[in-house]
Design a protein around this nucleic acid. Structure first.
Lengths: 209, 209
DNA sequence: GTCTATAACGTGATAGAC
DNA sequence: GTCTATCACGTTATAGAC
């Protein structure tokens, strides 16, 4: 699974530096709390240049947000449509790859959920999530498994809530969960890493319970 | 389980009206995106009164945030420390009660996670989450069950991630999940309501898999 | 206590020199 | 293209009348 970002860090153009900085700051603080001055500083350039290249904070944000969103779901689609693997294989691969990905960019789930809250419609119009799900090989295999009676009849939405939640929730609730468990960064990450192999086992247990 | 809020809606004092309005607006938009004008309007009072009573936006926010946070976890502690019920009974009761609670205030999980991100330490210092967890009857029963060999040996943090995630994630990711599944509000809520009884079954499956 | 009017401030955006 | 300086605006906060 490739990196979530299309602009690698070795993008040394000014425009690229600004976009990378914007991504960092927006992901960490969200649109409303992020200041263009923060972004300029992070990029090591002057505030005026930001507007020179991107016209406005909002335009810059829309670019970053759309890219993040697209990359986030493109990486889902890849695994979901691999035609060589079984349903179980896809579950294993997805859990493992996605948790690795989230270790690299842990703020993304909370960022996406927060920003969608403030902009429920606009963004998702541009990506056909529904189609991507229901036309995926993964979905067809799921339905097939249910028909065969190999797994319990369970609304696919439940499945997605469970699967995505088990993967993403530790990253969304990390500060809380660390505090609540008294873990330090290292211990916490170790536990989360274990989930790469545990989640597929649990999903199977859920689907056959 | 009591309502999350300590200031009921029949609080007709001006101070109470402002606080209730602030809670509504902050929960929906977060600190940075919320405007004091929005809060004043929501409360049906003048902007100047907000500062008269609470001095500043930040002070008002801190009050609301602390209250939300305390109430949120007070309602956890209640179920977790009921000494009359078994571990399984607590899981059932908690899942059911908490999902009902979140139907009343669906923005709270995302609100809490978002605001903790911007203020990781301050807030949680004031509540001994760690102690509340490890001293709870629930935790002791969990450890006991593991010792008995009745459930799998699984780090309690995994258990909490799974349990909390299964309950809260649908509310955190609601706009996304609705879009992705093509559900309308009613259909979505129906599915989530089913989880009140499904989650205990799944937790059991996870713990014995 | 509650209001109107306004001050003070922070932030996004631009003008203009280089 | 890049910078410094500054403007323009929205929002928080306060002064002062009632």
């Amino acid at each position: 699974m490739k990196n979530l970002e299309s602009n690698p860090e070795n993008d040394i153009s000014t425009e690229g530096k600004i976009k990378n900085a914007a991504r960092t700051v927006f992901h960490k603080k969200g649109f409303a709390a992020a200041r263009t001055r923060d972004i300029a500083e992070e990029a090591g350039i002057n505030l005026a240049l930001l507007n020179y290249y991107f016209r406005s904070k909002e335009k810059l944000f829309n670019i970053v947000m759309l890219e993040t969103f697209q990359n986030f779901f493109a990486s889902i689609a890849t695994v979901f449509n691999d035609s060589d693997s079984s349903l179980e294989g896809k579950i294993e691969k997805f859990a493992s790859d996605y948790i690795d990905l989230l270790f690299q960019e842990p703020e993304i789930p909370l960022f996406i959920m927060s920003e969608i809250r403030n902009n429920p419609v606009e963004l998702m119009k541009r990506i056909d999530l529904k189609g991507a799900v229901f036309n995926s090989v993964f979905f067809k295999q799921y339905i097939e498994r249910v028909k065969e009676g190999k797994i319990k009849e369970l609304h696919f939405l439940h499945f997605m809530m469970n699967f995505m939640g088990l993967i993403a929730f530790p990253f969304i609730a990390k500060p809380l969960l660390k505090e609540l468990s008294g873990s330090n960064e290292e211990q916490f990450n170790e536990i989360v890493a274990e989930r790469k192999t545990l989640i597929p086992v649990w999903m199977k247990a859920i689907l056959t319970s």
